[in-house]
């Protein structure tokens, strides 16, 4: 069902104007990010503000691998030779954009995956800032705050639709896998899951690394869409007010944080609202109306419908589903039976 929504929306956009096509491509970039975010946050119930740093790593990897070598030699004379002279095929570069953040995620998982609740939120935020500071200030490697130019522009609607659908399948398969199920067990009741012999840190690490890979790919897609990137885009950044971190968290929460359908619906819904608002912005000349309204939508969702549009349920096609009892972490805990 979610796959159907994505395909229909994207195909509709393709028959539309060129502007609409660009918007659809951007929506798909965000969708891949949200899918990655969902794999970790949705299944584990642990909040992460740090995923934008995976996107940054993916985007910079893609940039290094595809930008014109001659240009890199002039703009970044101090970067290591293998980066300056790299000129990979697009698909190889995307593979690397998944691999690099995944390896990074594996390393930072060692301390981070032990944390719960608020501590995890703060620690992932600290990770985001640390990576942001590194990228923005390591001038000899990344060019610092100046934009990284001339990245190969490959992202269009069919290209990103294929990637998004593949990622959707991966997210779905992971959710249904035994590891995904175990992780969701720890989300519902960590103590009970542990008592059944589930290794919480291990299951979280698997999801964390996989989600970093997906988000890294979304970074490559973004770089391949814009043709130029700068560190600000991936920061929490006040100027764009949260930038990608804010928008993707809004998508996940508004859609419904605990279900894959929610992630997809949230991404499509928020993208549509945002792009609609951008049109209005030009008319009323308030150039950040979009962010204001998105923040209000997120706020109202949290207050009025904390489980999101889907209520945390999966939606299948046709509209029937096996009824599994699922208790999102935010809900009040119902009285327990012995079998719980």
């Amino acid at each position: 069902m979610p796959a159907a929504i994505v395909t229909v929306v994207s195909l509709l956009a393709m028959v539309g104007s060129e502007v609409l096509e660009r918007k659809a491509a951007l929506m798909l970039v965000n969708l891949v990010f949200v899918l990655g975010l969902f794999i970790f946050v949705g299944n584990s119930g642990v909040l992460s503000f740090g995923h934008a740093s995976f996107m940054a790593l993916g985007a910079y990897t893609f940039a290094f691998m595809t930008a014109n070598p001659q240009l890199k030699n002039t703009t970044l004379p101090d970067a290591p030779g293998f980066l300056r002279n790299a000129d990979l095929a697009t698909w190889q570069a995307i593979g690397l954009s998944a691999l690099v953040p995944a390896v990074f995620a594996l390393i930072v998982a060692l301390p981070l995956m032990r944390l719960n609740g608020l501590a995890a939120g703060i620690a992932t935020l600290a990770m985001l800032f640390a990576v942001g500071v590194l990228i923005a200030n390591w001038e000899s490697l990344t060019g610092g705050r100046t934009a990284f130019p001339a990245i190969r522009t490959v992202t269009d609607v069919p290209f990103s639709l294929v990637i998004a659908l593949v990622m959707l399948v991966i997210a779905f398969l992971y959710q249904q896998s035994s590891s995904g199920l175990r992780l969701r067990g720890t989300r519902e009741d960590q103590l009970a899951a542990r008592s059944l012999g589930i290794n919480v840190v291990k299951e979280r690490t698997i999801a964390w690394v996989l989600s970093a890979a997906l988000v890294g790919v979304s970074g490559a897609m973004l770089a391949g869409f814009l043709g130029t990137i700068n560190p600000e885009q991936f920061f929490l950044g006040a100027r764009s007010a949260g930038g990608v971190t804010f928008v993707t968290i809004a998508m996940l929460v508004v859609g419904g944080i605990t279900s894959l359908s929610g992630a997809v619906i949230g991404a499509v819904f928020i993208s549509a609202v945002a792009e609609g608002l951008r049109e209005i912005e030009d008319i009323v000349e308030v150039n950040n109306l979009t962010n204001i309204v998105l923040a209000l939508i997120l706020l109202l969702t949290l207050i009025l419908r904390p489980k999101g549009i889907t209520g945390g349920r999966e939606i299948y096609w046709p509209f029937k589903r096996e009824q599994t009892m699922r208790r999102p972490p935010d809900a009040a805990v119902p009285p327990r039976t012995n079998g719980d």
Binding site: L47, G117, L118, G242, A295, L302
Partner: peptide, 17 residues
């Protein structure tokens, strides 16, 4: 607590914008 954290994030973005 994490829901409240996200709420405050939304408030922050709202006020900045």
């Amino acid at each position: 607590p994490t829901t409240m954290l996200v709420t405050s994030f939304a408030v922050s973005v709202l006020l900045v914008n």
